[in-house]
Design a protein around this nucleic acid. Structure first.
Lengths: 340, 340
DNA sequence: GCAATTTTTGCTCACGGGAGCAAGCGCGTT
DNA sequence: AACGCGCTTGCTCCCGTGAGCAAAAATTGC
């Protein structure tokens, strides 16, 4: 039993224990685990050996209590039906962790729940809150900001007009103009715009931009339909309901989708329910460039958000102590594939 | 300026401030936020009003420091290319949060990183660690258990032979026997088993079960191929490499996939590269029942894991103070659709 | 070799709340 | 009116670390 002298649950090993083992003071032990602290090489080594033997790691709760920094950010998410969420989470968690940030993940069930989620995060004293959901409207944001519980409230991959909020997003207007222009130049003339749910804050300007473009260039209003969530299954149901039974001449020649989740649902229904070909009968465009978009099945023409750049800017913002306007728009890239 | 008397960042409002405002002692304020504490209705009301005015919420870091419970669990994940991960995360986060657990999300980059991820979690003094990744082999688990830093180490949706670990998973043997039996009875005779990466711990017994079944019933070894990750794109590449150029008589009549991620990749490549029909030319089965499996595009015959039941059992385990064997296997349901 | 620095170390106090104890209070009983 | 009981309340001590200061030790210059 080589482990006999070790306690059965090492969670309660403290710096004092290590100090006794190493023959130094408790504060020297703490310093050994703080990189900016000054400590002699041989104390450091003694502490390391003792800590290793006892299985000690510093308690970040206590550290944050006195330093007033938790190195923890809350990530509030909803809209789990959208496959792009998985990509965003992967990118954010990877880059945040690389830079030393831990993540508190909160699944925000609905609009009412958002307030609770924010309270929850504030009880953990997170250094910042990142919203990548859709159910955060102005009421919720105002409530959070009114309570002044967060140093930084960051809206990721979505713009916000709220001045106390930091928005890191792709330039929707520019991106959608590029898509609209592509659609135009490829000769499509009867577009259907498939939009997602409308939220009062955290706007996407995609639909407005596309409609404006079309009106400006053709003097006509394109048809638009809204889906209640970014869910391929819901999108499929709405598209089927909208298009089935129409004469060929009444069908759109392209479905411009607010994002890939909708585009995937639209593709499936057009192929398998309406029995039409893509892009020959109806073309499709998306937005986000989720992994599925590149698959042999979808070959979706879409717009890639520079998620890595955005996430890296995010950690830069998190690390900054200044109090300036951090809002920033990024440009992505139109990925032309076979669907349009 | 109605807010003038409020500080600009309310994170530092403490129970003392509320106590002064409410005219009670600090401990009465704390009690007002602890449900099992005894406090008179009128003190409670005074405290609530004062707390509301100041924007106070208790600091869980401090609370956990003295109570020795964080109400925080770490969720270690990798394998983000697998769409099933999104479903699991949604289910776990929703149910854990409903029961009062917060979640520390850690993206485990690779095998070497798993150790760091565990250390990280232990520094936050999480009450438990949940692994839903694939890159946790016995070395990593042994290291974590050896350090004895966690009260509970739970492997979710995957079995483990490690006795110090709690495994909450679907009964792979039973499930795969059901699939194999279905494949058999539907008359398929030339199966190709598409397997995922082999890990030393956190085993799936799917491939072994299928191979055993086939050997037992037909005396022959079915063909098997392994993919390095549960990634549809990788699966597509491997299937294409394996099957392209084969004579029709040499093609499998069904591809039995270890999970839906692989099945999706296989479907795409069979349809769009090999130009074959599903299920007429080659049938397909999956495992997990991801949302895509139900779409008009895939109509995938697959096995649904009872994720909600599993997650609810998980919170039961988390809440239990006993020290017994919590391992449990669940049974799911074969979802017969059009792909096989 | 000695004084002047510089680095290292130990210490006090603080972070914000929980456990548990003892005093205070209200109230019914004798 | 005195007593006993139970609920509230305030208090001391403690959780495990960081900031910042003063003492101690190591290093430098001459």
């Amino acid at each position: 039993m080589p482990d006999e002298k070790r306690p059965s649950f090492a969670g309660n090993i403290t710096a004092d224990d290590v100090a006794a083992e190493a023959g130094v003071s408790r504060w020297t032990v703490n310093r050994a685990f703080r990189k900016e602290a000054s400590i002699s090489p041989k104390s450091l080594e003694k502490v390391r050996v003792a800590a290793e033997r006892l299985g000690y790691v510093p308690d970040l709760r206590a550290a944050s209590l006195s330093s007033d920094r938790t190195n923890l950010v809350a990530l509030l998410i909803d809209d789990f039906a959208n496959p792009h969420k998985l990509v965003m989470m992967e990118r954010l968690t990877r880059i945040l962790r690389r830079e030393g940030w831990d993540i508190l993940l909160v699944n925000t069930l609905d609009r009412d729940d958002a307030g609770h989620a924010l309270t929850n995060a504030s009880q953990r004293r997170v250094d910042a809150v990142i919203l990548i959901g859709i159910q955060f409207d102005d009421d919720v944001l105002d409530a959070a900001l009114h309570a002044r519980r967060f140093r930084k409230l960051i809206i990721f991959a979505r713009t916000s007009r709220n001045p106390n909020t930091i928005s890191i997003a792709v330039d929707d207007v520019r991106a959608m103009k590029e898509i609209a222009n592509y659609v135009h130049e490829r000769g499509y003339r009867r577009p259907l715009f498939l939009a997602g749910p409308r939220t009062s804050s955290a706007h996407l300007l995609r639909k407005e931009t596309f409609v404006d473009y079309w009106r400006e260039h053709f003097g006509s209003e394109p048809e638009t339909v809204a889906v209640a969530a970014y869910d391929p299954a819901l999108a499929a149901a709405i598209v089927e309901e909208t298009l089935s039974g129409r004469a060929v001449s009444e069908l759109p020649d392209i479905v411009v989708c607010e994002n890939d989740a909708l585009a995937i649902g639209a593709t499936d229904v057009i192929r398998h329910k309406l029995k039409l070909r893509i892009p020959e009968d109806i073309a499709i465009t998306g937005f986000d460039d989720v992994p599925e978009a590149e698959s042999a099945n979808y070959r979706l023409t879409t717009y890639r958000q520079p998620l890595t750049d955005m996430a890296e800017y995010l950690v830069e913002v998190l690390g900054s102590a200044e109090d300036r306007d951090f809002d920033r728009l990024f440009s992505g890239k139109l990925m032309v594939r076979d669907s349009a």
